[in-house]
Nucleic acid binder design. Sequence first.
RNA 1: GCGCCUGUAGCUCAGCUGGAUAGAGCAACGGACUUCUAAUCCGUAGGUCGUAGGUUCGAAUCCUACCAGGCGUACCA
Length: 554
Amino acid sequence: MKKAIKEIIECALNKAKDAGELELADAPDVVVEKPKDEKMGDFASNIAMTLARSERKNPKAIAQIIERHIDKGTAVLDSVEIAGPGFLNLKMSQKFFLDRFTDAVEKRNDFGESNVGQGTKILIEFVSANPTGPLHIGHGRGAAVGDALARILKKAGYDLKTEYYINDVGNQMNILGRSTWLRYLELLGSDTEFPEDHYRGEYIKDIAQLAIDQHGKEFFDKPEEECVPFFKKLAKDNILEGIKEDLSDFRVTFDNWFSEQSLYEDNSVEGAIEWLRGKGHVYDKDGAVWLKSSAFDDDKDRVIVKQTGEKTYFCSDIAYHQNKIKRGFKKIINLMGADHHGYVPRMEAVLQAMGYDKNIFKILLIQFVSLLRGGEKVAMSTRSGEFETLSDVVNEVGVDAARYYFLMRSSDAHLDFDLELAKQETSENPVFYIQYAHARICSIFRGAEEKGIQFSGNESIDLSLLVEEEEFSIIKAILAFPEVVEKSALALEVHRISHYLLDLVSRFHGYYSRHRVISDDVPLTLARLYLLDGLRITIRNGFDLMGISVPEKM
RNA sequence: GCGCCUGUAGCUCAGCUGGAUAGAGCAACGGACUUCUAAUCCGUAGGUCGUAGGUUCGAAUCCUACCAGGCGUACCA
């Protein structure tokens, strides 16, 4: 939409240049934005101010020159004004907006899409929680943000894939297997000691019970080395199954589940080390193998193979990210908890060592979630196994409210998630406010049908009957949607969608209380229904990006 | 010590990558349901944008220093 405005101004600039009134040494970048106050106009440009220096004229004089050269004979432009220090304020015609609005409505579910992504291949990796226990609320935020981001980036024209990286190798897995084995022995009456650093959650006992149900006492007398591999696999598979289920209940799916183990099986990890060694980025010291990450802005060098010969987590991560790039992704996005932020510089160092531009790699840090209940902090402790799992939270407040709460704030701000507020169906809870608007609109359509008013988007409706200022305020807000999606995609900021919808919907609630949609004036009724149809589509598409449902009745 | 994030109304937060008089919701106060869903709407009040400098036509936004809170700074993952 702003493109059209940009062209009008650029055209005027060119004419001014041809007339010799402006120098315009290099073609200026025309920025068009919405004025703060809608009364000032529909669009504004600060071009006169940015040109002030190079033209050596005061902004107002430049604005006057441009204004004179703007083509006012067209059907799209109503008026041009110069305001403040030199803003050009443009008011567009009713036709300008209505033409665009009908285009938008016709796009239906596709409304909001754009092509800023230009089909760029992106991989977004998120959640990637270790399969050692159920997902907790912090993972929930990552899941909601990652999933919504994926939907937004697709809408903005990227070729996007989602991925979950499974850390199914290493010491944590051994401890998991051992924990399960010990619980197994315990359940069968053996008097065993359960170490502090083992997984103490109830779910481990459930898995041990499962082993008993399936295999009885088969592992009771066997030595540890023979048992742990079995229990490791059993526990991992079982927990992973639970994670997949929790995510699917939370409306989060992945295109690919990538196993760390597979990187060892196909020798990618060895290969990556050797490759880096060949490039001189790796050296041996104190019996360990180090990556010279300090050469690429990391604080210090990092161990990739321990003295014991075991590879570090970081080591397989190197191979993993090499693998991602080899698969042809031009941009790689990782979501991580903010407590992992120390990890960012070394990961960027690896990519540079491998000869890639570090800008193809973007780590999004998701800040902490504090769980509250009626203003009181809920204690969370992973070690003791007592914590609010994602599925507990979802069961309590519902998927829609949970997702909305995770997505309503900028992900680099701490989030207070209050269980009481999230499930309250009051104005304190914006998710219902937005859903309510949708339900209201649907209710109006039902009412129209009952009155025998035939509405179909195809029939000729006289939209010029929409003359109320509030109606245009809604239309203009609807038309801003694709741009919101675009900006949200470029900034990787999901919360913009929820703020946008809140603003959009509040315009509707105000309009609703002052104007009746259904009346005896059938043409006007149809025109207003058409407006609401467009609004309904926008709400639905917006919530779809957030993975939130739009009820037709509440 | 060093690094990352945050600091805007009593509370929870926006502020569209530097623009016009800093905006919402909640809480407070006052109004609106015989009319398409009151889970709603309308109005009043509420501010040294953490502090101090700097950059320029113009700063909540960019730079520097400081203050406060959170997180990190492993041959853990």
